[in-house]
Design a protein around this nucleic acid. Structure first.
Lengths: 223, 223
DNA sequence: AGCCATTTTTAAGGATTTTATAAGGAAGCG
DNA sequence: CGCTTCCTTATAAAATCCTTAAAAATGGCT
């Protein structure tokens, strides 16, 4: 469950925003005191919503103070409609800028869009000529489905989902089968061999081996 | 330089958007025909800007058609101000929704914010014409990835990360392979030779030798 | 400038490590 | 049982790393 922090001096606004975002099943913390918003605390959250106009430290100052140490999306919430302020906000490393008055629907849509950036695409994805149907746990190349076993599919999906990233055999084993990687890494090598053989039947070879490290799904740059 | 694609049936709008975004140094391609927007083509871009209301296939349909195979941010550009449309847009996997009429400043700010977000997530750095993808352990020059071995990449990354700083062969060996530098320093010389050869194939020579001391990555001159 | 000692660059070969392949066995399931 | 899936083991193949030695470059010296 994503955790969000909303910072605003207006308590009514805090309540409103919290109610809106809890409808999407998020855990929402609120804070009216900017002094209580420290980098270490922010690292606990998946997204920050900051009001721009606050007594004491404003949202812009707050953002620039914590941005360097906080990796999550930061969204501004503001009545300032001027372009200059908006540009300034983005310049500080903000990820979105929602103008008041905003609709609840827009707020929820924007917040969810930024959260989804992290866990993009859970339905279907297509990489390197292979289409994955995550729900059906099927991999399709061209017209027919690839005859992967359950384990083979899981390895494939994990590699394709994180295309470009290298995984050691141990990491793969743990990510796919959940257990400790004590189960020998040569098992993964065996799976990789079988996967490659089945992909090769369709003229595909998206799995590269990074010597001394592990395997990765080729990040395709197609013309 | 980031590459952007703008899709809109209104040629005036295309010209306007292109002019605005080129001010930030982006390379902007435009397209008025939605049929010409195929997933393979979109994978070449770092960001897509789609108009919602277009004759034939609309922006929403276009987005859902390509989203599964396209990884980059997708921004909608629209006159439809209704919340329902906005929520639908985000639901299709869009990353932002810019309402017309928009200011040039806001457009630029939002586009840049999304481009920057991407850089933050991929943890990339670019030095001396070489782009390092730390996660993927890949070095990219121009269009293709450099065929570095694990050790060669590690040396390169270390030098590039500390551009301008000189390292003796022993320091390099210890920093990269962790062990004591007992392993002869001439091994490093051999690696440096191979690295330079591979870089030279792309017309690059960022590694300088400091006579009697060691090697360093030429420090970029930042404007 | 010319020469020498030192350092770096280059080249080739073998040693070591890592991966690919093939064959076989244990566990689960109809 | 027969079948599939997963894992183990053993061997072959491949790639990397290191060593060695010779060629080239550098800086200081007379």
């Amino acid at each position: 469950m994503p955790k969000l922090l909303v910072v605003d001096d207006d308590l009514d606004m805090l309540a409103l925003v919290r109610a809106a975002l809890e409808k999407d099943g998020h855990q929402v913390d609120t804070e009216a005191d900017t002094a209580a918003v420290q980098p270490a605390r922010c690292q606990l959250y998946d997204l920050l919503l900051l009001d721009v106009m606050m007594p004491g430290e404003g949202g812009f100052s707050l953002c620039s103070r914590i941005r360097a140490e906080v990796d999550c999306p930061i969204l501004f919430l503001t009545a300032k409609a001027e372009d200059a302020a908006l540009v300034q906000g983005f310049g500080l490393g903000a990820d979105d800028y929602i103008k008041k008055p905003f609709s609840i629907a827009e707020l929820r849509a924007r917040v969810n869009a930024h959260l989804r950036l992290r866990v993009r695409q859970t339905r279907a994805l297509s990489r390197g000529g292979v289409r994955f149907d995550i729900q059906a746990k099927m991999a399709i190349a061209g017209e027919h489905t690839l005859p992967f076993t359950k384990g083979e599919y899981a390895i494939c999906e994990h590699l394709a989902l994180h295309a470009g990233q290298v995984f050691t055999k141990e990491q793969l084993y743990e990510a796919v089968f959940g257990l400790d990687a004590e189960g020998d890494s040569s098992a993964i090598a065996e799976h990789i061999k079988n996967i490659r053989a089945k992909l090769k039947a369709d003229g595909l070879s998206p799995i590269e081996t990074v010597w001394g490290v592990g395997y990765k799904w080729r990040k395709d740059i197609v013309l």
